[in-house]
Amino acid sequence: MTLKEAPIKTTFLIKEIIANDKITTFLRTLGCMDDEEITIISKISNNWVINVKDTRYAIDKNIAECIVLCD
């Protein structure tokens, strides 16, 4: 399941990032790495507000599709 498909107000572990090098590097600078906890705070239009390492970020639909979560 990708972040895009996951329910809001739920915490998951990141299984892997499936993206090109530019997006992967960007997500890693935010702290989105394998086996890291990620919480989906809310979904507003085509943007997801997430919490990673006690920091909130807004990401768009395309980036949300690149984050694969553990079931």
Rank of each mutant, 00 (worst) to 15 (best):
Y57C: 04
I63G: 04
L30F: 02
D21Y: 01
T10C: 03
K4I: 11
M33V: 07
I8K: 09
K9C: 04
I17F: 02
R28N: 12
I44N: 15
T25G: 09
N51Y: 00
N46H: 10
C70M: 12
L30S: 05
I63K: 09
L30Q: 07
D71Q: 09
D21E: 07
L3W: 09
T10M: 06
K15M: 05
E5I: 00
N46W: 00
E37P: 13
T55S: 04
P7F: 01
I50P: 02
A58M: 14
Y57W: 10
E65P: 00
A6P: 09
K9I: 01
I41Y: 04
K53D: 10
D71F: 04
N62R: 11
C70L: 08
A19S: 13
D34L: 02
T55G: 00
D34P: 08
E5Q: 13
I44Q: 14
F26Y: 14
C70H: 12
D54P: 01
I40D: 03
E36W: 00
I63Y: 08
D60C: 12
D34G: 01
I18N: 13
F26E: 10
D21T: 03
G31R: 01
T2N: 14
M33Y: 11
D60E: 08
E37H: 11
E37S: 09
D35K: 14
V68D: 12
D21G: 05
I44E: 15
K43Y: 03
K9T: 10
L13S: 10
I44V: 15
M1Y: 07
V68T: 12
D21H: 01
A58E: 15
I59N: 04
S45A: 15
A64T: 04
M1I: 11
S42R: 14
F26W: 06
R28W: 00
A58G: 07
V68E: 15
S45C: 08
E65A: 14
L27H: 05
S42E: 15
I50K: 05
S45T: 13
L13V: 00
D60T: 09
K43G: 04
I14G: 03
C32Y: 01
M1W: 07
V49N: 08
D35M: 12
I59T: 04
K22A: 06
K22P: 01
N62W: 06
I67Y: 08
I44M: 11
M1H: 10
R28A: 10
P7E: 13
E16G: 00
Y57H: 13
C70D: 14
I40F: 05
K15C: 04
I17V: 14
S45D: 15
T10I: 01
N51R: 13
L3M: 08
C66V: 02
K15W: 08
I23Y: 01
W48A: 03
K9D: 11
A58P: 00
A6H: 07
M33W: 01
K15H: 12
M1L: 12
G31Q: 04
D71S: 08
S45P: 00
T11S: 13
L69K: 10
W48Y: 14
C32L: 10
I8M: 10
T24Q: 09
C70Y: 14
